[in-house]
């Protein structure tokens, strides 16, 4: 099964990447972790997202389309990065996320969401 794994944003990630000894060490740890994922054969793709101040939202209302510029509120609900993994089940995904280095300087969250698969549509 495929899962998308989201690194949720924090006040720090919303400030954008600032090279400090701390963030450099984190990037290094994350690089090692990504190597592990790759060597286990589960990593399909991954990327980091720029802060929401560089993003835009398009609000839909019937025929209406309204563009809203970032940054966006509800920081902790935003996404700062993602992986796409091919795993056997959710337990495996959870086990892998647990060994991820904390992606943020402070408390943070990672969320796992399974993708719909062909079989889910065949009712």
């Amino acid at each position: 099964m495929r899962v998308m794994v989201f690194v949720k944003a924090t006040e720090d990630s919303e400030k954008g990447f600032v090279p400090t000894p701390e963030t450099t060490a984190m990037m290094e740890a994350m690089g090692k972790y990504n190597d592990e994922l790759r060597n286990a054969g589960i990593l399909l793709t991954a990327d980091g997202l720029k802060p929401s101040s560089e993003g835009k939202r398009i609000a839909f209302d019937g025929p209406g389309r309204r563009v809203i510029d970032g940054p966006f509120a509800e920081t902790r609900e935003l996404v700062a990065g993602f992986w796409l993994w091919e795993v056997k089940d959710m337990d495996e995904a959870v086990a892998w996320v647990k060994r991820c280095p904390n992606p943020m300087p402070g408390p943070s969250e990672i969320e796992i969401r399974p993708l719909y698969e062909m079989a889910d549509w065949q009712e």
């Binding site: 190597d35 790759r38 060597n39 286990a40 054969g41 589960i42 990593l43 091919e86």
Partner: peptide, 12 residues
């Protein structure tokens, strides 16, 4: 999928 996983492991 199993073979792809093995192939990715080997590439690593």
């Amino acid at each position: 999928r199993e073979a792809q996983r093995l192939g990715r492991m080997l590439a690593g």
